[in-house]
Design a protein around this nucleic acid. Structure first.
Lengths: 133, 133
DNA sequence: ATTTGACCTGGAGTGCGCTCCAGGTCGTAC
DNA sequence: GTACGACCTGGAGCGCACTCCAGGTCAAAT
C-alpha cells in the first residue's frame, strides 16, 4: 500500500508540514512519488515514522534522531552505534521519569496543603499557606 | 538572610540571567535591593524559586506559572484556583509519565532486538533488524 | 474549457525559554 | 585615585521544532 501525504499525516499524527520538514532535514528518506510527482508513502515509511514519533515523545532531540536515521543507511556495521543511542536514550527517559515522580510528590504535598485550607475554611485561621505558597 | 544574585543563582540552580528574566516576566516579585541598588534575595524568595523550578521541571509552561505566581498576590480567595492549577498539572505529569513508560517499553524492545543481533553476530543471518529498524 | 482541490517548492515567520551584549554604576582592595 | 569585579539596564539574538505562505502544477469533476 501507498499513502498520500494527507493519509500519512493522519496515520502518523504528524502534520503535512512536519512530514515535509522531516524529509528536508533527513529524518525520513524521500518517499516514492506517483506519476504526478506527489509523495507516496509506503507502509515501511509509516512504520519508521511511527518509531520516529516515539523517539520524539521521549524528548530525543532531532539532532540525535538524525544520527540514528542516517545510521540506518549504513547497514549492519552501524548496529552497535544505533543500539548505544537507544540505550543512552533509555537512560535519559528513566531519569526523566524519576524526576517527574519527584515533582509529583511535591505537587501532592502542595495539593494536600490546599485541601487542608479548604477543610479549615469555616474556621478563621489566618491563611497559613501563605508562608510557603 | 539575604543573598546576592550570584548566590541566589547558585542556590536555585538558575542562571543570573534567568533570575532577572523571571523577575521581568513577573514570575518573581522584585526582590529587595541593598544600598547600592543590587538585588538582595530573601529566604522566602529562594523558597519560591525552588518551587518554581519544580514546576518548570514538570513541564509547566511559563504562562501557567505566571498565572499561579500572580494568584499568590491575591490572597486566600485565590487558593481554589491555585489548587486547581496544581491538580491539573499533576494530571498532566501523570500522563507524561505514562507516555514515557510506553516509549521506554518500545526502546527496551528495540534494544533487545539489537542484543539478539549481537548474539547472532558469529552466524551469518542477514541483518534481520533492517526490516523494522 | 474551466474550476476545484490536493499537492508541490523554497523560503520566511513563529513561539518558547532563555542567553548574551553594550554601556554604565558601585564599593572594596591596592 | 585607579583598577577590579560584581552588579545594573534595555534590548537584541539564539536554538529548537515546527508552521505558514506565495505562487505554481496537475488530474478529476462539471
Amino acid at each position: 500500500m501507498s499513502y498520500s501525504i494527507a493519509e500519512a499525516a493522519r496515520r502518523s499524527g504528524l502534520s503535512i508540514d512536519t512530514l515535509r520538514y522531516y524529509e528536508r532535514i533527513k529524518l525520513l528518506d524521500p518517499p516514492a512519488r506517483d506519476s504526478a510527482g506527489r509523495r507516496a508513502y509506503s507502509d515501511d515509511d509509516l512504520t519508521w515514522l511511527g518509531f520516529l514519533t516515539k523517539l520524539r515523545l521521549t524528548g530525543m532531540p532531532i539532532k540525535s534522531m538524525r544520527e540514528y536515521a542516517s545510521l540506518r543507511n549504513h547497514g549492519a556495521a552501524s548496529a552497535g552505534r544505533r543500539k548505544a543511542i537507544l540505550v543512552e536514550q533509555r537512560k535519559s527517559v528513566a531519569a526523566r521519569i524519576a524526576e517527574l515522580q519527584g515533582c509529583m510528590d511535591i505537587l501532592d504535598y502542595k495539593i494536600s496543603n490546599y485541601d487542608q485550607i479548604e477543610r479549615k475554611a469555616f474556621g478563621q485561621a489566618p491563611a497559613l499557606e501563605e508562608i510557603s505558597a
